[in-house]
Design a binder for these strands. Structure first.
Lengths: 127, 127
DNA sequence: CAGAATCCAACCGGATACTG
DNA sequence: CAGTATCCGGTTGGATTCTG
């Protein structure tokens, strides 16, 4: 589109290619902590400390960054109860739940093909 | 399961938690280049140089690493034609195609919610 | 053409310490 | 309790050079 002279080779993927504009969504799904947190929130609202205890190995820093990011994207709601000490609850939004569903489908795929991938790797590594 | 004394708090996510064993699959989906390469291969076999031209901005190093990784997992087939100069074609395997389908579903989700996410971010950043 | 190998800068994320 | 701020080591990936 930008220049002439192409034959039948696909256009290079650039900024306005659909796949690229979806990068941030894919990053989200690929993100270790986001997936784990969304998975936990899928079973109901959780407090900050609850998440920290449940997501094994997550640092305070990463939990906060992950929640902020999910909140920014409208996937998670943050509810502050200004008691003392303060209480903060996190919930999946409706849209967050639909993404969570997609992730679950992906997890299903992985489950269905775990053996296959494992065997492929063994075979490949034997070379 | 490992220790007593829990109330109703979920078990911490550990190595043998399903979500963790699927980490490598999610990493694959979240990987910038893997998704782009699989997307391209979805429309038919491609040569190495063809991929390099089509995937805008990918370095030789990353293209090779990505293809090796996809091949290792049994998602991509590599066919060498030992002419001179050599010719190498890459194709999605059957399993690779099914994953590609999942990714497409995810891309569909992102398409359906792009506006929502964009607006969420604008609102959040305005704070 | 299709890679392999090396080098190095940038980013990521864990650990730690501090706060309203 | 629910964070924020700072430091810093490890990994990632781009640029470059070389090869069958």
């Amino acid at each position: 589109m930008t220049s002439a002279g192409h034959t039948d080779v696909r256009e290079p993927i650039s900024e306005d290619h659909p796949t690229c504009r979806l990068r941030d969504i894919l990053d989200r799904v690929g993100d270790k902590w986001s997936v784990l947190v969304m998975d936990l929130l899928g079973s109901g609202p959780k407090r900050y400390s609850e998440l920290q205890r449940s997501v094994d190995g997550i640092s305070q820093r990463m939990l906060t960054l992950t929640l902020r990011s999910l909140e920014r994207d409208g996937l998670v709601d943050r509810t502050v109860t200004p008691t003392s000490p303060p209480r903060v609850d996190y919930t999946l939004t409706e849209v967050g739940q639909t993404l969570s569903g997609q992730v679950r489908a992906l997890i299903q795929w992985a489950d269905d093909h775990r053996e296959y991938v494992a065997r492929s790797r063994l075979r490949y590594d034997a070379t």
